[in-house]
């Protein structure tokens, strides 16, 4: 394996050849090559099974990373690999889960620590209800206004003549012919 460790050209050439032999390789534990320029790549911890835990992800999805990136903790720690805040918050989530807190309690603990701004959406209580309800209140108000306006318009419309007057009464044949020609002029 060591011949593959650094050589760029060999690796790229080998990638085609490997396509033919997709068999599983023995996992090599000791002979992982070092990068020629390790500084050009962010250093990362090994992923543990808990990093992929759906519950952990769900909790982290509800909280904002405090580094100023505007992302939630999960997205930040799996996207912005220069951020040190989100991995720290991730470890804190794991620690709090370990101390037998429920997910809601974990989130509440973060809120107590950092304030409401740490939550990705305002918690539904008190004044924050305004955030959630205003759009639907607007929809309701709009529907009421629209209903009233439409009722007024429909009532105000000229009453349709009770019996259709057949052909427009009082029109001369000449005028009707003119109308027919005008209609033909309009492309349809």
């Amino acid at each position: 394996m060591s011949h593959r460790s650094l050589s760029v050209a060999l690796l790229l050439a080998a990638s085609g050849a490997m396509a033919q032999t997709p068999g599983p390789r023995p996992p090599s534990t000791d002979s992982v090559g070092r990068l020629a320029a390790p500084g050009a790549v962010q250093s990362r911890e090994r992923v543990t099974a808990r990093d992929n835990d759906l519950l952990v992800k769900a909790i982290e999805g509800r909280m904002r990373c405090t580094c100023g990136c505007n992302l939630d903790v999960f997205t930040c720690r799996t996207t912005d690999f220069t951020c040190t805040t989100s991995p720290a918050m991730h470890r804190l989530v794991l620690a709090r889960l370990d101390s037998a807190l429920t997910p809601d309690q974990v989130v509440a603990a973060f809120e107590a620590q950092y304030g409401q701004a740490v939550l990705m959406a305002p918690p539904k209580r008190g004044f924050n209800w305004a955030a959630y309800l205003m759009p639907f209140a607007g929809l309701g108000a709009g529907l009421v206004v629209l209903g009233l306006v439409m009722r007024r318009w429909v009532r105000a419309r000229p009453k349709p003549s009770p019996e259709p007057a057949g052909e427009a009464a009082g029109a001369t044949a000449q005028e009707l012919e003119r109308l027919r020609r005008e209609l033909e002029r309009i492309e349809s």
Binding site: G61, R62, R64, N70, D72, G115, Q116, A117, V118, L119, M120, A121, P122, F127, N128, A131, Y132, P135, F136
Partner: peptide, 20 residues
Amino acid sequence: LSEWLRGTKVTVGPPFFNQV
């Protein structure tokens, strides 16, 4: 609005916008 009226910083992120 929240910070102005109540002095509370809040974040309004994707979970809010998706719900609404």
